[in-house]
Nucleic acid binder design. Sequence first.
DNA 1: GAATCAAATGTAAGCGCTTACAGTGACGCA
DNA 2: TGCGTCACTGTAAGCGCTTACATTTGATTC
Lengths: 339, 339
Amino acid sequence: MSSDQQIPTLDDVAKVAGVSTATVSRCLNTSEMVSEKSRVKVMQAVELLGYTPNFGARAMAAKRTFTIGAIIPTMENAIFARGLQAFQEALHEKGYTLLVSSTAYRPDVEAEQIKSLIARGADGLLLIGYARDQAIYDYLDRRRIPTLLAWSFHAENAQPAIGFDNRASMHALATTVLDMGHRDVAVISGIVAGNDRAEGRLQGIKDGFVTHGLDPEQIPVIETPYEIENGANAFEQLMQNPKRPTVVMCGNDVLAVGAMQRAHEMGLRVPEDVSVTGFDDIELARIVTPQLTTVHVPHREMGRRAADALIKMVEKEGTGASIQLQSSLRLRGSLRALT
Amino acid sequence: MSSDQQIPTLDDVAKVAGVSTATVSRCLNTSEMVSEKSRVKVMQAVELLGYTPNFGARAMAAKRTFTIGAIIPTMENAIFARGLQAFQEALHEKGYTLLVSSTAYRPDVEAEQIKSLIARGADGLLLIGYARDQAIYDYLDRRRIPTLLAWSFHAENAQPAIGFDNRASMHALATTVLDMGHRDVAVISGIVAGNDRAEGRLQGIKDGFVTHGLDPEQIPVIETPYEIENGANAFEQLMQNPKRPTVVMCGNDVLAVGAMQRAHEMGLRVPEDVSVTGFDDIELARIVTPQLTTVHVPHREMGRRAADALIKMVEKEGTGASIQLQSSLRLRGSLRALT
DNA sequence: GAATCAAATGTAAGCGCTTACAGTGACGCA
DNA sequence: TGCGTCACTGTAAGCGCTTACATTTGATTC
């Protein structure tokens, strides 16, 4: 019949309930300030009309949105999925909503997404890693948007961050690899430019060489975006090398799985013919055969604690202090000792 | 210095540029209506102040947000990642922004998320599958929110949808399996209740039995949520059966990979001792050894065309017709013929 | 030089909500 | 009876933007 049905507003609810808009609003937000009687009337009216508050209007009037934005490099692979899931759950518990967007590792897209989330009224932001234009930090500062960095941690940087030391973690793994007698190490790294995690990990391997009195400059390194196919191609290329590596250390598990896959296709056995290591310990690491030696990152803990920390910052209770988490090695079948 | 710096508004820009707010607004939205001179002044002012429009205010005044909402069951595994990525890219090209949220396969959470996205002003919605309360469809209708369903397609249902026939697809796979001589088939299905895709796939297997003149009622079926670990456990349980299955057909690739993993742990060889099949053809299917026989779904095409269709609906150009896509079998190493 | 008209701009009314401030009435107490 | 309290409730002023409508401007025409 009435095809001109309109979307119900606060006014409609107020009219139906026979109270003022203020009472309806209070009922929906700070219900303890409203009498039992009014509350019942209002709730009935809400129900009857199928009313849902208009978020934009609410945000504009209240200058709060209870929304947190997170911007991650990619949703395509599982690297960030688990941590973000925990982040989301923790936020939800405290009544916050999470808005996520991804950048495909492109700084310009990240800048755009940051503006977009702020325009949408995000009360706080979670970003990945430190590396970005100073102008962005300035903008965030001017806007007074509490911002927490995750997946990385540098003690010397003042920006609030929660994460682990990528460089030290990879250093630990490299040390183990070298201790096992490997000397012909090749590396498949993520793109280092604009990615402090990738850079730290690569440095960590070099640190290991230095610690062992070896020359880090002669390590064959291929930089390539984090995709399985790229890992596979890089592996093949590295194996062309006259001095074949005995181990290929990869910047993350995705690259490592690609490497293992290509090894298999090339008829090379892992770890008998060549060892492979990863980083992140995503689900994939335990699905491949043999299972992947990698660095375990406490994704869920990071997500959960990031949520707590960021909410504290938003609610002005927190100083925005940084938190360092510990990673740990997972030695599995893909790495063997040279006897 | 000035710690009381305020967020710049349209008014500020107008003042700095020496024009009215209307001109600034026009300049930002329909710039062809503004003279070259004003445009330059306005853009300079925008730049100078670091102005970003307030999304909520804009949405409220314009009654358009150029935002599309998508609600998927989970982000944890890759099932929806690829399709959604394509969806997002296609939307972006046309100037729309995508807001995503997930439900953990819980109908109550989905209802909540729908309201939340609508409250945020989503111009249109993408939902997965048909199965949900009629009240939700009514609500969407009242609100006049163009809604497209994806990942599923039933010709007999009037709701606009884009997807494939899960039942027919699985029927095709089951037929192949039976043609290969398998008779002792066991099934690991997703939870069927409230999930028409899972239900269709299970039915498809039963259809195959019927087609072959077999009794579908004697198939051992375990229903379990789509997680690797669950697939593994279900597999183990099915193998306890006195009459061991020669093939385990799984509701999706994630369950199938879990099954293969547990087979490996139990010392069973795939496909020599037992065959395994999946559904979806996500990346994982080609990473496991042997590679997984599965049903390939045109995720990217679905995402792209979903975007086109939904935008047409939003812009009132489209009738909201449904689109059926074709799936296809991928026969790989995890399935062998019984000789 | 006046009349005409299109293009560019300005004015101001909302969009749906929150909240400061100002009542209102019931109650207890002197 | 008068008055202060207290617990609610109502009034109305914005929040930052878009856009219908009114107005100005300046080029064009007769």
